[in-house]
Amino acid sequence: MIGAPGRPLALLVVRDGEPPLGADEAVAEAAGAALVVGSGPSATGLVSARRLWLAETGSFAPGALAAALSRLTTCGPIILPASPDGRDLAPRLAAVLGRPLLANAVRVHDHGAEVTRWGGQVTVDLTAAGPFVATLVPGVRGSDPVGAPPAVEHVDIKVERGDDVEVLETLEADPATADLAEAPRILGAGAGLGSRGHTALLGKVAAALGASLGATRVVTDAGWAPYERQIGTTGVAVDPELYVAFGVSGAAQHLGGLGSPRAVVSVNTDPSCPMTAMADLGIVTDAPGLLDELAERLGVERD
């Protein structure tokens, strides 16, 4: 049997042994119990794991995999990281098991979960009558290293091919992304910066301070910065020493990729946004205005 009856179980999909973003946190939220499926499942990187079940299920196919997991009926809440594959699989699994899906959770408890709404601006506590499936936003909880290696059991899960998509190729991250992932100092551009011009200026100011430019998804979607600059659960995971956020609200999906910077400054007109709430210094002011001033002081030319 996989998982303990009524107890939470984390479900991770790995690709070539690579755990998804937020994997360890999902395991920690499930008190150390996890089923690892995918290609090349292993315990690597799961410092919060106490009890692991590993099943080789080949390349990722959400429909077929969900059908194959239909026997996960006795365990309590099933928690997946809200990584791309986790978000793909969770609703299919919920549908197969006839369980409710509590997506985008920032906290999972025995009877439900606290989920975010409106782009991470508000949360609602959802209570389910029975067992449920939840996805946990990466980066919101951290993990509890156990210190001892987990008990590992290999299990057999047969996946019948279904109507899933076929992966033609996987494209590795751009080198420009790796650059951001390792950057020790990052200035982050958020929607509050207001324009393409100011995002470009922030890039120059960052260069003047020996820092790299990061951005939120709103900014990359608007085309003000290339996608490789996006920090977060569906962008690059970073872990800088310094993060200065310009007009970033601090949605869970953004913070999810932020690591744990030693020093955080949030420039925002809203003093109670999550980004300012977690900053060492919150500056309540107009971000483009401050940026113009900085550029002038640092002698940065605008074009």
Partner: peptide, 15 residues
């Protein structure tokens, strides 16, 4: 299938 509690502003939880 779920019951919703009160809607609150998002506050990061301690990590």
């Amino acid at each position: 299938m779920v019951q919703a509690g009160e809607q609150k502003p998002y506050r990061p939880r301690p990590t």
